[in-house]
Write a protein that binds this DNA or RNA. Sequence first.
RNA 1: GGAGAGGUGGCCGAGUGGCCGAAGGCGGCCGCUUGCUAAGCGGCAGAGGGUUAACAGCCCUCCGAGGGUUCGAAUCCCUCCCUCUCCGCCA
Length: 422
Amino acid sequence: MLDIELIRKNPEKVKNALSRRDPSLVDTIDEVLDLDKHRRELIAKVENLRALRNKKSKEIGHLRREGKDTKASEEEVRKLKEDIENLEEELSQVKESLHNLLLRIPNLPHPSVPDGEDEEDNVEVRRWGQIKEFGFEPKPHWEIGEKLGILDFKAGATLAGSRFTVVKGLGARLERALINFMLDLHTSKGYQEVIPPHLVRPEILIGTGQLPKFQEDLYLCERDDLYLIPTAEVPLTNLFRDTILSEEDLPLYFTAYTPCYRREAGSHGKDVRGIIRQHQFNKVELVKIVHPDTSYEELEKLTTDAEEVLKLLGLPYRVVELCTGDLGFSASKTYDIEVWFPSQGRFREVSSCSNCEDFQARRMNTRFKDASGKKRFVHTLNGSGLAVGRVLAAILENYQREDGRVEIPEALRDYVKADIIG
RNA sequence: GGAGAGGUGGCCGAGUGGCCGAAGGCGGCCGCUUGCUAAGCGGCAGAGGGUUAACAGCCCUCCGAGGGUUCGAAUCCCUCCCUCUCCGCCA
């Protein structure tokens, strides 16, 4: 959520920044400004009346003790009360409209974010690794996995429908190995391992920005009004909602393995084969809660921490900086890490590392007390470290051999207790 | 799921209709005293919002959340949420 005071005091600055994402947001800001003005006018009126009512009521108390008649005063206050109630009703409606509007406005992009409309305009910042030359036509991971008997798409469809896959045997063990490998790496770098709930309340999703705008992307357990998490970012970032941390507590680093559940509404026809886009997938997440002055250094570090996984696995990748049009709702700046898929001849996203600045902190009410005792919002960051299923697919493709077998990357062999699948 | 107890400031805890934004204690901050420390003494200090040049003043709101009764609610009534204890069920 954007700071209403910032919008009020620097409307042009806010409009300029937001229009880099979407020019229509300029009108939304004007709407916000109108509502905010109306809101403050109503507050002034209501409060004046309340002050008067409080004064009169106190007088009644004094008069009573002196044994005087208070009928007239009581009638006067009763009338005041009606006026107050009417204005309060109007005020709460205005407040609600304003709040709902603010909750649907995305974060301001950082000045360094390149302009652009979609992923075509993202800017590559670096590459790592040597793309392997195969002496044969590299197969897609779904063919490799099916043939090895480790990916069962038919069983997944039978059990739960499309975009669900059953992983078996050494494939399942490889997936578990990847999770352990990633967690071990991150915890060795100071991230605290967490096992969070996989079901959360609506307000938790408002905190990180998935609600109210992206409801249709989420699975909802209606009887209990709980949502399945689309990423561990949601419970981890919300760990300190409604709290005031002390400056020495910062920075906080967390990592968690969780399944992620996404309805993938509106992505019909995209990546229909394989395990690139699933309704349920495993992910190891990195979350940082940091001092505002250091959040951009922390973003660089977070990104390299995620990259480290691919380096150790020997998977070629590149890092791109998202343009304004591709930036997520809550993010000010985002780096995507994309791993090489030989069968597709292109890089595919396995991580998205973002600095949300105080956008989520304001929604969650997570603050800290600085040296002078002033309360400030923290900055929050998150990044995949990494998307496990996609990395598994990348391993199948990059480590495939002509005979259909797949080598296990060196770094995973102790975990998998095997050096080849097939 | 059943029965009961409870949710008050950073923490503990008093407060059953006005003089309560809230006693007292602990912790915190600032002084004084004091070889140092500790103890002691005195003082300061809740949060959010409106107005404003202002972290000055004034005003409003907040005692788990939301409604209600009343001229007036931390206090009375209703609903919900959460925590704890016991029982049941259960990985």
